[in-house]
Computed example of a mutant assay.
Amino acid sequence: MQSDAKKTGLLSIVSTGPGNTQQLTPAALKAIAKAEYIIGNNVYIDLIRPLITGKEVVKSPMGEEVNRAQMALDLAASHRVAMVSGGDAGVYGMASIVLEVAERTQSEVLVEVIPGVTAATAAASRLGSPLSGDYVTLSLSDLLTPWEVIEERLDLASRMGVPVAIYNPRSRGRPHNLDTAIAVIGRHRGDETPVGVVRNAYRPGEEVHVMTLAELRADTSPIDMHSIVIIGGIESRIWKVGDDVRGIITPRGYHRKYVY
């Protein structure tokens, strides 16, 4: 007979980072190891496949987030469940919808959110240090947010002069959103503004590109939903050693206080 302790479940919303298992935190690895059920989008399940051998795996396609959240809560009433979410689950991830469903259904299931490496910071690490101080993250996906709101936020973020990390920059269903975003950003940023594009950060097929805003405007075709675009701030600069482009630096302000 199962003890009451074993009947007490736990839902861990596990951030899996950029996809390479080396970027998972120890807490994320522990939650996955202890889980009886692993639930997640097909892509993120496949990326952690070596860690979930012998576990009950429930795959769920894009667009089924509400059902996925409810299923996870139902299972977690009496089992340990790991809901996997790419990047950081609290940044365009599964944490919000799971907690919203739990709140609306008055679920008593214990839920924990385990943080992880976000797509923006993963991409930034491949570019040098473009997000060293204040910065803004924005998604160009208008599936859940009206485009008018996104455009207003882009305009305000560009006025701030800080770097902007753009998620979901270009998809087949909305190929022109990035072009429109660049036009909005260009109202307040010059053509020579540094731009970094990272595709498949820490995954097979990784690509890293450093360019100017004018060069990005001229050709956005290589960018897709697996890409993160980082628009430099007014103090950002392209880091070069001779003619070798090393990345992007956004100074924090040490040059204003120290001599080095």
Results as ranks from 00 to 15, higher is better:
residue 57 V to W: 05
residue 180 T to W: 07
residue 240 K to H: 12
residue 4 D to C: 05
residue 260 Y to V: 12
residue 260 Y to M: 14
residue 149 V to I: 11
residue 164 V to C: 14
residue 54 G to A: 13
residue 139 S to F: 05
residue 44 Y to E: 08
residue 155 D to E: 05
residue 83 M to Y: 05
residue 223 I to M: 09
residue 245 V to K: 07
residue 70 Q to Y: 01
residue 156 L to M: 13
residue 249 I to P: 01
residue 35 A to Q: 00
residue 19 G to R: 02
residue 225 M to R: 10
residue 195 V to F: 09
residue 223 I to Y: 07
residue 143 L to R: 07
residue 202 Y to A: 15
residue 222 P to N: 07
residue 4 D to T: 11
residue 184 V to G: 09
residue 96 S to N: 03
residue 154 L to H: 04
residue 26 P to S: 09
residue 53 T to Y: 00
residue 75 L to S: 08
residue 62 M to I: 10
residue 92 Y to W: 05
residue 184 V to C: 13
residue 139 S to C: 11
residue 216 L to H: 10
residue 176 H to F: 14
residue 181 A to K: 11
residue 14 V to T: 05
residue 184 V to R: 15
residue 128 G to K: 12
residue 233 G to L: 01
residue 208 V to Y: 09
residue 178 L to W: 09
residue 235 E to I: 12
residue 25 T to S: 15
residue 172 R to G: 15
residue 66 V to M: 13
residue 249 I to C: 02
residue 239 W to V: 15
residue 56 E to Y: 08
residue 35 A to W: 03
residue 60 S to Y: 08
residue 20 N to S: 14
residue 9 G to V: 07
residue 217 R to C: 04
residue 26 P to M: 05
residue 186 G to Y: 11
residue 102 A to R: 05
residue 32 I to D: 01
residue 101 V to W: 04
residue 146 P to E: 04
residue 39 I to F: 06
residue 85 S to T: 04
residue 62 M to K: 06
residue 82 A to W: 03
residue 88 D to R: 01
residue 75 L to A: 01
residue 247 G to Y: 00
residue 100 E to K: 10
residue 1 M to I: 14
residue 227 S to G: 11
residue 66 V to S: 14
residue 216 L to Q: 10
residue 95 A to T: 11
residue 217 R to G: 12
residue 51 L to H: 07
residue 68 R to T: 12
residue 15 S to P: 07
residue 148 E to F: 05
residue 253 G to I: 08
residue 154 L to G: 05
residue 143 L to A: 09
residue 140 L to H: 07
residue 71 M to C: 06
residue 24 L to K: 04
residue 37 Y to L: 00
residue 194 P to D: 03
residue 45 I to Q: 01
residue 78 S to M: 07
residue 5 A to D: 11
residue 140 L to R: 12
residue 178 L to A: 13
residue 125 S to A: 15
residue 211 M to R: 12
residue 101 V to T: 08
residue 166 I to K: 02
residue 167 Y to C: 04
residue 79 H to A: 01
residue 50 P to I: 12
residue 50 P to Q: 00
residue 201 A to C: 02
residue 3 S to Y: 04
residue 29 L to Y: 05
residue 38 I to E: 03
residue 49 R to P: 04
residue 94 M to R: 04
residue 83 M to A: 00
residue 148 E to M: 01
residue 163 P to V: 11
residue 49 R to N: 07
residue 33 A to D: 12
residue 128 G to R: 10
residue 122 A to E: 15
residue 133 G to V: 02
residue 16 T to C: 10
residue 161 G to Q: 04
residue 156 L to Q: 14
residue 184 V to F: 06
residue 160 M to E: 08
residue 215 E to G: 09
residue 179 D to C: 14
residue 170 R to N: 09
residue 182 I to Q: 14
residue 256 R to M: 10
residue 8 T to N: 15
residue 60 S to N: 13
residue 166 I to F: 04
residue 149 V to H: 12
residue 78 S to V: 03
residue 139 S to G: 14
residue 238 I to R: 06
residue 30 K to I: 05
residue 186 G to L: 12
residue 70 Q to V: 11
residue 41 N to H: 15
residue 146 P to D: 08
residue 86 G to R: 00
residue 17 G to E: 03
residue 70 Q to R: 10
residue 38 I to W: 00
residue 166 I to E: 02
residue 59 K to M: 06
residue 222 P to G: 14
residue 180 T to F: 04
residue 255 H to I: 06
residue 176 H to Y: 08
residue 172 R to P: 02
residue 79 H to V: 00
residue 224 D to S: 14
residue 91 V to E: 03
residue 174 R to N: 08
residue 174 R to I: 02
residue 183 A to V: 11
residue 21 T to V: 08
residue 165 A to H: 03
residue 232 G to C: 12
